[in-house]
Every structure is written in C-alpha cells, then in structure tokens.
Write a protein that binds this DNA or RNA. Sequence first.
DNA 1: AGTTTCGGCGCC
DNA 2: AAAGGGCGCCGAAACT
Length: 573
Amino acid sequence: MNDRWALAPTEDGGAEVAPLGGDGLPAGPVRRERDPAEAVRARPEVARWVWRSTAEVYPRLLAAGVRVERCYDIEDAETLLLGHEGRHGEPRSAVAALARLRGGPVPPDPPQRAAEPGSQSSLFEPRSVHVPLAELVEVYADQQRRHDATARPDRMRLLTAAESAGMLVAAEMNRAGLPWSAETHRRVLHELLGERYAGGGEPRRLAELADEVSAAFGRRVRPDLPADVVKAFAQAGIKVRSTRRWEIESVDHPAVKPLVEYKKLYRIWVAHGWSWLQDWVRDGRFRPEFLAGGTVTGRWVTHGGGALQIPKVIRRAVVADPGWRLVVADADQMEPRVLAAISRDPGLMEVAGRASDLYQSVSDRAFSGDRAQAKLAVLGAVYGQTSGDGLKNLAALRRRFPKAVAYVDDAARAGEEGRLVRTWLGRTCPPAAGAGDAEEAGIPQEDPAAQTASGSSSGSGFGSGEDGWVPGYASTNSRARGRFARNFVVQGSAADWALLLLAALRQACAGMAAELVFFQHDEVIVHCPEEEAEAVVAAIAQASDLAGRLTFGETPVRFPFTTAVVECYADAK
DNA sequence: AGTTTCGGCGCC
DNA sequence: AAAGGGCGCCGAAACT
C-alpha cells in the first residue's frame, strides 16, 4: 500500500512525485506533474505527503482549493532531530542536511525576511528552494533512521508528525484569517481615545492625560518618554528606577494616576490603533501569519499585528460573520495538568483527574484552602521563583506533591549543568538557552570582549564570574539556564499536547464548514455556522481526550476546556 | 540614513 | 510583597 508519497515542486511550476517504501526511499518511479495541486488532487488515497517545507507548498495547494490530511515537513523534522541530537546550531535546510549526508560543505541557512503588513504570501519563504525529489528522499530516509536511533522513537515520530500537522493548521488559519469588524474596532478606539487630530498626532484623550501629567509635575513632561518621567519624579524628590507600572503605582504623587492611564491607552494607540487597523485588516479579516513551533519551547509565534497579544478591550472587534458563531475554547489550568502528566506524581494526577478547579483542589490538600497561595506556589515551581511568598509555599507543595516538584527541580539542575532537557515528546532545549548570552547560545560574536559585561554576576559576592567557579554557588547565567529548563519541560510539553489537540480538532472539523481561525497556546477559536456550533463544542472535548492519551499515554489526567459559543470574542468569559 | 538595542507592556 | 518562563510590537535612543 502506497500510503506515503513525496512531492517536490520544480522550477517550472510543476512537481515531482513518487510513492515511498518502508525505508523512506522511492518504491516506484518518479513522475512529473504539471502542477503540485493537480498532483495531490489526482491521488486522494495518499495518507501522508512528504515534502521539504509546508510553508512553501501548502499555501499554494490551499489557494488551488486542495487540502491534505497529513504531511511530513522534512525541514521541520530536521530541526527537531538536530535538537534531539544536541546539534542545535547546525543548518537545518534540506540542502544542508543532504550535504551532511554526502560529506560535502554544509551551506548556512538563508536569512529570514521580516514581516510586512498586508502580505498574503508566506513571509518566511520568500523564494522556493528547488531540491530534486531524489535528493529530498535521501534526507527523508536518513531521518527515519535517526528517529529510530532516539531513546523514544515512538514519541519522536509523534512529535515530528504532530508539528507537521500543526503546520497544516497554521497554513489553513493563515488563509482563513480571524473575522474582524473594523467598524467595531473604530468605535472602541473612539470610546477609549477620543477624536483623532489631523496630522497623526495623539488623539484627544491622550493629549488631555499628557496635560494632566504635566500639570501635576508643574512643567512640560512627555509621559511616553521614560527618561523624561524619571527625571520629573526626581525633581519632585522621588527616586524611581524605571517607569514600570508596578513601580510607579507605589509612588504617592498626583501625576501617577494620569500617567498610568496614559501608558495604558498609549499602548492601545500605538499597538492596536487606527494604523494597525489600516495595516492588518482587509475584507473583514485580520490575517497574521501563524508559525507552528516558532519558539524553542514549541509554542507558536505569529508575525504581523501582534496576534498573540490582542488586548482584552480590542477583542470586541472579533465578530463572527452573520449566521456564524465563534466557538472559543480555553484549556483550564493547562500547565499544572501537564506537570501532573509528565511527572506522574500520584497526588497531582489525582487532582488533575477532575474537571473541577485544580488550584482549589491543590489548595485543599496543601494550603488549608487558600487558592491564591496554591496557584502562586504551582506557578512559582514551574517558573522557578527565587524569592518571596513563592518559596515559602513551594515547601508545602513539595511535601504533598514530591514527584511533581522533583521533576522540575531535576530539569532545573540539568539546565544549570548544561545538560540537554527534553519535553515529553522529545523536543530538546538548547543547553545554553536562558542564559541571555549570545556566546553561550552558540551564536558567534565578532568581539570577544563584548560578552564580559553580561558574563558577570550580580549575585552573592562569592561567585561572580564564570559558571562553577566557586563550588556550590551557581552563577547568574547558570541559574537563568536552570529557570529556563525548569519552565521548558512544562511549557514545551504543553506545546506538544496542544499540537495533538489541534491535529485532532482539525480532523474532527474536516467534514464541516467550521474553520480554525485562532490559536494562542492553550486557547483555540473555531468559526462556524450557528448550526454546527454544538458539534464543534463536542469535537473540542473529544479532541482534548484524544490528545491527552496520544501525548502522555494512559493517565488519570484530564484536560477540560471552558468553551463558549459567542458572536463576539470579548463575550467569551 | 539605516540598523540594532532598549524600555515598556500586551498576551499566555 | 516582589520580580520568575515564553513571545511580539512600538517608538525612542543608541549605534554604525
């Protein structure tokens, strides 16, 4: 049965295709087709298409009205496999992978291009790289062997398959766009910011607040310039180190209130104001570019329009088409549930086996009913909190859920010692990540002296300088790596699970008009006709169960969602 | 003049 | 009360 086929676009706009055997090599002749879309359309029996880059091929297929069920993205798999092998810095292109196989000089990866407003094409595949099918499948076959060589081949296969599925979802979401009412957006902006003045200057409300700030200081102050604000406070006899809100709010001065309000509205104005609307919304859709696996941890990133940072107030503008609905689904307490699943801590798994409020349950067991403390402790353990209430609460957490805390502690230690750390499915953290030091992260530096400043420690007074210089005193950099690795195993395993969730949900929606239109770490939005909404809600619950089992195996852990069927995103919770 | 970094803050 | 993970984006500041 020829269930896997390879596809390679050719320079003349055609495609080469071939069936693949169990070894990953062609099991039949390479055929030339006039058009990639035709090549796929003509072979509905193919279960998985193997190609160099989903971002290169799939948008074109979608534009021709062709969807595929599954794919395998060779360059994405190369990235994941190189990481697993502890070779993060090496070029990841198919051409580079082939050169490594054949022992030739390995070309560096092409530089990426920045996002541009309004662009419909894939921003990160500015041009096609034509790798002949015969060479492509050499790389693919080698990758199959490298999967087998990992400690958990089953999980690694699942990871590369899941991320390829994520790339299909991303391409489909990029094509669909997020339904966006420019009219509502403008109304919200007017309510918050007031009238715009000609010439593109500050809108009325911001100008008023700036005047209030100036009046409070007794001189002209520009609230959008941190240096100016710090100086103004100093002249008023108040020392502030920065103009961050948490620091400013603790100051007793009449300028604080209008200043904080100004900063909040200024943010809306510059990041999601009228010019944003102009740049990113066309024909009732906001079209950011979603990129699956764009971060070290496997979380997605977007390019353009700050799609993963849409302020709550602006979500009023996300409005379903007439007769359609938005199904907004948010995973409840995803991170502690993932921690339960990966650590197999019996107590935490039991707590995470219920759909009820997890933090309340943790609190009942370990914090005599104080939910806020329990939540702080859990998040502190996951993020590596180093001081404050989090530390005190961590002790209680450790007593009740020792395996869970030990799991993240082990990851932190591995990170500090520069060892590899992996997610549940095998995505691997670069050993020097989290240090904030380009040299250690494997990025060559022109000037060796440039790293000295960031290499010093602000710590104990004993161990300033290089890692491990004074036994028992970890440097600032190694502690940062520890915190990164601690968070990585949880955030990254959550990203593993989320990919499987999206893949399952996409599958479940395949026969419907429903479209996935948004994804943000633990939250998904499906746009669908009103009459499909209930089926979509059910599909989300089923996809969650399936994703939990596929990712983590059989555990008691559940991944409940809070789901809302709404016409407007802002009305969901 | 163009490019990179910084400060701040939005989201999870 | 105090400051701990991941991102993107903007204007200003700092640089080449």
